[in-house]
Design a binder for these strands. Structure first.
Lengths: 193, 193
DNA sequence: ATTTTTTCTTAATATAGTTTAAGATTTATT
DNA sequence: AATAAATCTTAAACTATATTAAGAAAAAAT
């Protein structure tokens, strides 16, 4: 099993000792996911925290008109989870599916709670993880309330150089909150500079 | 000292035992803050997690044109902190000041780290705290990328009924990412329905 | 290899939101 | 109570972004 990437990931926060590695290994499941396959759909309860070994996912809502609005992208060495649904066992409003064929490692709610309860380190690591994600969202909010679409696009390209050329512009537009037609216009304007 | 409100707040997550209450009490400081007084300014390092006993604060950036962009409001029984500056000891890009005369309880970086290290409960509680704030930001992002200003305004009024009438519309506009003039137009349109 | 589906672009027209300016109202300060 | 400062509103002109439609290019599926 491809758990090394997950262990390396943890060691960037706080390295795990042998016992913790064993406990973790027992409690996670590896899966391959095809392109366009869902790992969460609306009205499901999100029962897993998902670590991405390789590949790329999007998490999004679909509005009454059928339009997707992308809340997060997540690629290798990142986590994806609807934590509202996960922690409160509520039906999710979100979809998560694979943009590329992917390999993931999942830990379900009861196993993660077990680790939280028995090993302080996991509580700590997941606190720091979510703090980092919180800061990213704060930056995104600031961008959204203070910048024009063109600046937000440029910022996206700078901030996610590893994924921006793996994602079709339709989806980038949806993430930025603009139409694909307008993104096209922006790209044209940038290329003329 | 007005620490009861803070203890009640913690007990909504996980109640503290006597030792934890003592440790916490020793490590926090109470302060009164006047209207318009700063508790964080740009280029300072945010050295405190601030719990609001009473009153109301705004956290914001100021752009090159001098315009404020409000990232968070926070009122009684809530926390406010630039966690990027706090955890990474980096100079903050943000200001925090009081919209109303306020009473706060602060815990500084080294004291909070002490509690995290010696009592698992605090690590846990602050994880859950930040998870809740993360979910709020996710909702705000979704609103921003998928809704018109009028819907975002209505949603703000519903979500923060306790603070929306304590905050001037100029500041609500800044939080929503629109101009005060346009908010005025929106309010006029709503009142005619 | 061909067909189907998805993606990207362009352009015309429409709508959402900004800017500037000014006056009226409310709130804070002396 | 009087003055100063901040807030709220209106309106006209402007800019950013959406919508509709259609065709070209690229990628995926058969």
């Amino acid at each position: 099993m491809n758990i090394n990437k997950l262990l390396t990931h943890f060691s960037n926060y706080i390295p795990l000792n042998e016992e913790e590695v064993n406990e973790l290994s027992k409690r996670v499941v590896e899966r391959n996911v095809k392109r366009k396959e869902f790992i969460l759909q609306k009205n499901d309860i999100c029962n897993n925290y998902t670590f991405i070994v390789s590949g790329l996912f999007k998490m999004y809502t679909v509005d009454k008109n059928g339009a997707e609005h992308i809340l997060h992208f997540a690629s290798e060495n990142d986590w994806i989870c609807d934590i509202n649904s996960f922690h409160n066992k509520k039906q999710s409003l979100l979809y998560i599916d694979a943009i590329e064929p992917s390999t993931i490692i999942q830990i379900d709610n009861s196993n993660l709670m077990y680790l939280f309860t028995h090993y302080q380190k996991f509580d700590r690591t997941f606190r720091v993880l979510i703090e980092n994600k919180f800061m990213e969202l704060e930056n995104r909010i600031l961008q959204n309330i203070s910048s024009k679409a063109e600046e937000r696009y440029q910022f996206f390209l700078e901030q996610y150089p590893n994924i921006c050329n793996r994602i079709p512009n339709v989806l980038i537009a949806s993430y930025l909150g603009i139409t694909p037609e307008f993104l096209s216009k922006i790209r044209n304007a940038i290329s003329k500079k």
